[in-house]
Amino acid sequence: MIEYRDVSKLYSEENIALIEVNIKIKSGEFVSIVGQSGMGKSSLLKLLTLEERPTEGRVIFNGVDLNEITKKEIPIHRRRIGVIFQDFKLLPQRTAFENVSFALEVAGEKPSKIKKSVSQILDIVGLSDKFKAYPVQLSGGEQQRVAIARALVNHPEVLIADEPTGNLDVINGREIIDLLLKINELGTTIILATHDKETVNRINKRVIVMDEGRVIRDQAKGKYMI
């Protein structure tokens, strides 16, 4: 489903983010990408959302070479991928419901469908009683759930989670990971970037370890080891 073929990314001659990365991710997989900060995890994910383009090599998504996707087609491509971040990236002036419905408005969905889909997805992430709450009225864990709901509402084939537990306490962090596992069980491919050892070990699924822009280990049921 997703394939990185000999991908290198250079920001400048001194600043090399990725070196000849080769990764294949199958549909429905849960992959953790681990490594210290600045080892290339985020660059790897940005190539998938087309925030960055590879200097060399190709990224294939569902049989399409992402190098061929034009600037105009990028928004459509992004709707097929859900993304969540460490800092949640919610719109502070919109309620939980509006933050999620926004992703559907962007896609031009009808109001009736938006109402139905958003209610459903907020139920799934466990926020059925927080529709009208603004981000500032929600806990960190709840905010991340809103972000997950927003990422999922378009039914993406893959969900990218970039350090999703970074700003959360242990209990909330665990709950978010459990939610991601549940989403994965329902069929969505998940790519999780993290440097949190405990999280990775608890998941007990495929782990790709990055160091200095290279893949140094790729194990089907791995632990976080460097």
Binding site: P75, I76, K89, L90, L91, F102, V106, N154
Partner: peptide, 12 residues
């Protein structure tokens, strides 16, 4: 940030 989020969710 708002613009960044808009781009993220695939706004044209």
């Amino acid at each position: 940030i708002e613009i960044e989020i808009m781009r993220l969710v695939g706004a044209g």
